[in-house]
Design a protein around this nucleic acid. Sequence first.
DNA 1: CTGAAAGCGCTAACAC
DNA 2: GTGTTAGCGCTTTCAG
Lengths: 343, 343
Amino acid sequence: MPKPGSRLRLVDVAEAAGVSLATASRSLTGRDGVSEEVASRVRQVAASLGYVVNPYARTLAGGASSSVGLVVHQVDDPYFSEIAGGVIQVAGEQGLMVQICHSGRDPHYELRQIRHLIAQRVGVIIIAGSGYDDPRTEAETKAELTAFQNLGGRVAVIGRHALGVDAVLPDNEAGGFALGAHLLSLGHRHLAVAAGTGGLTTVTDRMAGVLRALRSLGLDPSSLPVVHTDFTRDGGCRAAEQILRDHPDTTAIIALNDAMAMGVLSVLRGLKISVPKKMSVVGFDDVSVAADLAPSLTTVRLPMTDMGRMALELALKPPSTRARRRSTGHTLVVRDSTGPPRR
Amino acid sequence: MPKPGSRLRLVDVAEAAGVSLATASRSLTGRDGVSEEVASRVRQVAASLGYVVNPYARTLAGGASSSVGLVVHQVDDPYFSEIAGGVIQVAGEQGLMVQICHSGRDPHYELRQIRHLIAQRVGVIIIAGSGYDDPRTEAETKAELTAFQNLGGRVAVIGRHALGVDAVLPDNEAGGFALGAHLLSLGHRHLAVAAGTGGLTTVTDRMAGVLRALRSLGLDPSSLPVVHTDFTRDGGCRAAEQILRDHPDTTAIIALNDAMAMGVLSVLRGLKISVPKKMSVVGFDDVSVAADLAPSLTTVRLPMTDMGRMALELALKPPSTRARRRSTGHTLVVRDSTGPPRR
DNA sequence: CTGAAAGCGCTAACAC
DNA sequence: GTGTTAGCGCTTTCAG
């Protein structure tokens, strides 16, 4: 792959503007040390010439690294593609490149990707997706990120709290509570949970909210059936089958994300178990198709696109001594997949 | 954004291997001019040291530009996120960065993005998404891409044929035919089409297939109602409303992509028009949720992820004198949204 | 086949 | 304030 591109260099701009290379550079980077008058003229000339800096030269020379690394579970998972959309928006506004890679929800693979990004000299790393309950798993990642930050790199994460970096935190606990409370207030007393892979903090947090809802009504959380399968549509299928088999009196299934809820619904449909008449189902996230399922899915909406935006904006701010946290808020969206329990 | 990263340089590797900088460079880039013996030793040392080249320095020095620009309509549209997934996979395997940006299906905005990518010195540009019927609209883009290629850049497109570059071409015409033929063979004689924005070649091509199916049965294509609205879920809604109002005897609606089909289904559901009993509906693409809609959607499957892979692989091959074309194939996936017409 | 040296285009000290 | 200059880390002629 050769090196194409416009041949216009900063020297050309400098010449055209009748200033030195340094002055031109300062003008365009917004550094001070130039009179505003000269600076704006240089910017003028650059624009009229259609000049765009060469990011490789700029970065090599010790300037801002213009690229951000984004680690997601998978871009073609709606939850992550919406987050990616937000990150890309902000990056576009700032003229930054986004280097996306997949983690596959495998902590070791994820660590490899992070190291790769660092080796590629990205200036910012954004990691989206659940963390892991096991502190040892997170420790290595945390060490790597800390080292990266000490070298001047910036990091922000979405949906993980144990990394000691700036974080955008979805309202997982509160959303779980809202879901539980909604079902309980409808009169359900035989809930079951299709939970994602054990060990994911997202799963743990959402569960915690559900349990709190139970306790808030004086119910015994320990009697709640919780089935751990993959945090995917397929996992939802298997969880539903198991719940139906082992807990036939269940009247409402809480899937801990929308993908799982889709799996649950599909099994129920296959078995001709009517939703919500015979079984209520809720999801979590409100991915864009949730409203188009039949029945449309009651779920907790998280502002995924905004979360992506917020994360990059956080990372782009001047670093602070202690990690910042931004909570996302959530909205319970009641649709057609929930109703009162069957008689 | 400062410039973090590992401090290990090629000189360090060269020193450790006891060779010169030049030899080390040649060894790692795979250039010849080094004995295979020395080369492999250098690679060995580099690997054991955990050396990774600095892509900024490499690119600046005139080496391979290691980044690929990907232009999609929107990453959070499932059709494009799956394509992006394929591109990212291949890029990951090759150690390339992917810079994604949105075109928003606006030819002028798209051109701006392309120019931006070129200015950012990407080595490869992949453009996914329909082209435009108007030759003038495409001409400017084509000129820009040709200039880019003359400077050594590589380009591949997905789903457009008028750009004179390597292309991955979805089976739009044949897929349209399959959809039309399926419905006709079911006995439908009052079809209507929810077509996307006029002016998109994808729409034109899929339509052509549908019309051919009609003609192949000796039916008059000119009597087919075709409603042009946005190529989105929302467009599908509006198209459905219009079809229902202006052509009440319609028994089957062909939506020219799955997003539109979802809109159509949602209107039908709102009106309690049973699918497929009263109305059959088909889509196009087979995005992953198509199987989860209720009723599940009959559609034409396109291998989106593979299309992304193919496009980047094509672009990474040594350039050929004339543009290459790869056809994708397609599969008609019959599900529950189609059936015989109502009596 | 290997090494020395000249940049790639830009930023950041360092002078003026 | 503005200009001069020395690199950033790598690839690539050009010598040997």
